[in-house]
Design a protein around this nucleic acid. Structure first.
Lengths: 261, 261
DNA sequence: CAATGATGTTCCACCTACTGGAACTTTCTC
DNA sequence: GAGAAAGTTCCAGTAGGTGGAACATCATTG
């Protein structure tokens, strides 16, 4: 089998990829050579050369005349064309609009990346106080309803592997006890959706449901979320619409539940 | 000065960047080793190692069990966080919504990348036949209204450099004669907006206006576009709303025209 | 406005680790 | 099921990447 073969890869390319990922995940819109050096444990010369190389292709920009670097237009172009190839994004967008309109709260779409997930779309309602999520930034699979919706439908082996890791709390409300989380996973599977109050983001609440592809793998999760102050009591009322949207999308992805049991 | 210094860069990193750009710009959602080999003039072994390296960081995925590669979740995450750091994107979004609602046509936002540009946002109206653009895919600066709006406000030197290049037609309507294009640029500057009927995409028409930052550099372009059949005659009617939006955005970016002359 | 420290950039000799041709394997085609 | 095409792995040679240190530039402060 192919896969994690030893060193049939290129170290400098992987280091460059790590630099890009650092820009994507650090939260900082721009970084200096030394910061990158410290974060990745590379020498200044190496970081400098990597940045110069990425810059020559537009993935990285020099900010004005300063010595700070930021993601460039090629990075953006890459992500947007990638998004355009994701069927689920186009399909789910109108559903998100619909959910946001019906509930008067924010509707989101997430996808998974290993043991993490990130938002790829959101629709916010027209009102004063709304919840808005950061797109592209990864979150662990045990904090928040969208995360738990992914986690709950992983294979037994994957869930076991995930629970074996040290679960870091994201907020004071994050579930970090594996036993508790396993019980939660059971409940989520039984109900068909996940909910959270302040597990990933203090002061916000949400409900989430998975979208399955033709072979029953969850490829995305949609959620409805809002400020917990007002939304925690309205969570339940949103569930029917949420599940309807999720099921509609699953069917359009070719999934027919119970077809073969 | 820093800049295009000789070889203070890493060849393998630049090759890997080229591979990613190929995925972004080829239009193909997935590619094989040989295709990449031919497109970039690299050996199969090199391409294979680059793909393996990018794959280890999630920038590239193996499609199912096939031997085809596609952009991975890290590429998407990268682009989305990049988008989140772009102030103009958040600011322009409501303006696009507004323009689309007012005109009942598609409203778009583009940014420039060297001598190219690409769409980073669009709002389509709710009607049967709408125009929809591909986000992230680059277009040359001489075809279409958004492109010409960028071109017209480049510096004299940059315009001269651009016109010196061989201008390839994108459709049968593309302006490729430098003299004609220069005249067009003058007209665009005078009017404050650009228009096009089928120059970039046959069967579509559009008007576009630039957004300036505090020092008067065009950082983005907004456009309204639709099927030329019905929209070519309505172009003019959209211009006031378009310019109003563009001016409002320029002001919010800190641009105050005529402040210092 | 020097002096000082921090950060960014360049240099260069060393030697790792990347390259490319070829062999091998797998998949597709007919 | 043979042949062709595409993908993957191997290996020896050396291109080219590395990192320590020198140099340059910027920021800060008295």
């Amino acid at each position: 089998m192919a896969s994690e073969n030893s060193s049939q890869r290129i170290a400098s390319v992987e280091r460059a990829a790590d630099v890009l990922l650092l820009f994507a995940q650090s939260g900082e819109p721009n970084l200096g050579v030394t910061e990158i050096t410290k974060a990745l444990g590379l020498s200044k010369a190496v970081v400098h050369r990597i940045l110069a190389s990425l810059r020559s292709r537009g993935f990285i920009d020099l900010i004005g005349e300063s010595r700070r670097y930021a993601l460039g237009t090629s990075s953006l172009s890459l992500g947007l064309t990638c998004l355009a190839h994701l069927d689920i994004h186009a399909l789910a967008h109108p559903e998100l609009k619909n959910l946001s309109r019906l509930t008067n709260e924010t509707a989101t779409l997430s996808i998974r990346s290993g043991f993490e997930r990130f938002y790829i779309d959101q629709i916010t309602p027209n009102r004063e106080i709304v919840m808005s999520v950061a797109m592209g930034v990864t979150h662990p699979l045990h904090a928040g309803s969208s995360s738990k919706a992914f986690l709950a439908w992983l294979s037994e082996a994957e869930i076991a592997a995930y629970l074996k890791r040290k679960l870091k709390p994201v907020t004071s409300g994050t579930i970090v006890d594996p036993v508790k989380l396993m019980r939660e996973i059971g409940a989520i599977r039984a109900k068909g959706f996940a909910q959270s109050v302040g597990e990933r983001q203090s002061g916000s609440a949400s409900v989430a449901a998975p979208i399955f592809d033709r072979i029953g793998t969850p490829i995305a999760v949609i959620s409805i979320c809002g400020p917990s102050e007002r939304f925690r009591s309205e969570l339940k009322d949103c569930v029917p619409a949420l599940l309807e949207s999720a099921n509609r999308l699953s069917r359009r992805m070719g999934y027919f539940p119970k077809k073969k049991i």
